[in-house]
Nucleic acid binder design. Structure first.
Length: 463
DNA sequence: ATCGGCTCGCGCAA
DNA sequence: TGCGCGAAGCCGAT
């Protein structure tokens, strides 16, 4: 009877052994629990499941557990459902079984493992506490081995066991090992094919899920690996060349638009980074984008993994807390309620336009997300309030809400996380760097942007 | 238009 | 222990 320890490379930083032990030789399949990495191709968790299944002479059956996470909206779930349909099609081509069930992962996955007589479970990894909790619970309720593959970063997170301070502390560490990890991903088909397994109707499952249906699906972003890859190649072919050079287009009109897809794992940052690295764009453009999609992004993953307060005010650095505390009593000339903010009814026309794009489209270019978050402390009674409102709106409207990038962005904007102080000390925000029109104007034309997101004029009632 | 200085704390050199 | 330097800024001097 083989044990799992002898079948996997224990030195592989990308693989976490959640439960060890012997493998039952009479088992019927390897269970692949897809959660964070919602894609059939370019997926290292799928590949590990295939590798182990081949060693054991078993087929692979993949499962997804549909459950309503905190602050789940129809917008996010419609996007996710589109992605999951794509997963089903892709896995069929890879001769992997596919099951979608609703319920709590801690119930559903162990139950499924029993039903299918699984030899072991291969899962993926999540940076947020909800996703991490699911894995721990599942591992605690099974009696077979379980592995988790860190498939949604380029450099495995386990190489950064402590909280990193800033881009400059993680950058050299990533640089040292990047060539070991920035590789292409094969799509092996298991030797033993799974029987056709009928998946439940996704729309029906969605209908029965307890989610907030008042936030409508994005009219612009459709989920799925197929669409994600189309976006990636459009970016590489048409916008990457000017990513760093054209000042008027850079990072606002020229952004890659991939964040919703990266959030749901419709595409991996590894595939994105690999495609960019091997494109024929100029080195400055490539380096600039690689810095975004690897260094900055993986810093935010490290933040979520290593700082338990990654989504609250408490997660900001000490110097930020000190300086904000010193200005806690500063008068706020204007205070808006959450409802006024949510409706985009402030006196700042650019901010309102950002809020409208967020509400309608579920997306905002990164730099505007920062401007948006940086204004909030000026208009709320405390920085803590500003933080809480920022997180609430972020999670409610963005397709990629609940993502480490969003939380780290808010912590950077409001509390100076991953940043340094910037004197002179100013009212309310103290030493936390401000962002005003002059800075934004270097990158785009605010008026053009405002015009793109007009206030909807109510239709006149016919009378 | 460009440039230095502003503050803080990490990480490395010594 | 000292020193260089940094996620996307701002202000004032030149």
């Amino acid at each position: 009877m083989p044990n799992i320890e002898s079948l996997v490379n224990q030195e592989d930083a990308r693989i976490e052994l959640l439960r060890g032990g012997d493998i039952d030789e009479s088992a019927a399949c390897v269970l692949l629990w897809i959660s964070r990495s919602q894609r059939a191709y370019g997926n290292l968790a799928v590949n590990l499941a295939v590798e182990l299944a081949d060693k054991l002479g078993l087929p692979v059956v993949a499962a997804f557990c549909l459950t309503a996470y905190p602050s789940a909206t129809l917008r996010a779930y419609a996007f996710m459902a589109e992605g999951l349909e794509d997963v089903g099609h892709g896995l069929a081509k890879r001769k992997i079984g596919w099951i979608v069930r609703s319920g709590e992962p801690a119930e559903v996955i162990p139950q499924l493992a029993k039903e299918l007589n699984a030899a072991l479970i291969v899962g993926d990894q999540a940076p947020d506490r909800t996703g991490r909790g699911w894995r721990t619970e599942v591992a605690g309720r099974i009696s077979i081995p379980m592995l988790a593959v860190d498939a949604d970063v380029v450099v495995p997170s386990s190489l950064f066991p402590k909280e990193e301070w800033a881009p400059r502390t993680i950058r050299p560490k990533i640089g040292r090992v990047l060539d070991d990890y920035l590789t292409s991903i094969p799509d092996p088909v298991p030797r033993r094919h799974a029987q056709k397994l009928k998946a439940l109707d996704l729309t029906e499952l969605l209908d029965n899920l307890d989610i907030d249906r008042s936030v409508e699906p994005s009219p612009r972003f459709k989920g799925g690996q197929t669409v994600a890859r189309r976006e990636l190649h459009h970016f590489v072919d048409h916008r990457l060349a000017t990513y760093d050079t054209d000042r008027n287009r850079s990072d606002i009109n020229g952004s890659s638009n991939l964040s919703p897809y990266l959030h749901f794992g419709d595409i991996s940052s590894l595939e994105v980074a690999f495609a960019v690295r091997n494109s024929d764009a100029e080195a400055v453009a490539i380096d600039s984008y690689i810095n975004e999609v690897i260094v900055q992004r993986e810093l935010t993953v490290n933040f979520a993994l290593r700082n338990p307060n990654y989504d609250t005010f408490d997660g900001i650095p000490d110097w930020g807390k000190t300086t904000l505390a010193r200005h806690a009593g500063d008068p706020r000339p204007v205070i808006y309620t959450r409802a006024e903010l949510e409706a985009g009814r402030t006196d700042d026309l650019l901010w309102n336009a950002c809020q409208r794009q967020m509400v309608r489209e579920g997306y905002l270019p990164n730099r505007l997300r920062m401007y948006w978050a940086k204004q909030l402390p000026l208009w709320t009674k405390s920085a803590e309030d500003a933080f809480a409102i920022a997180v609430a709106l972020n999670d409610r409207y963005f397709i990629d809400g609940r993502d480490p990038s969003g939380y780290a962005g808010i912590a950077w904007s409001i509390g100076g996380r991953h940043d340094r102080p910037f004197p002179p000390e100013r009212p309310i925000t103290g030493l936390v760097r401000r962002m005003g029109m002059n800075a934004l104007k270097k990158h785009f034309n605010p008026q053009d942007y405002i015009d793109q997101w007009p206030v909807e004029t109510p239709t006149e009632p016919v009378q």
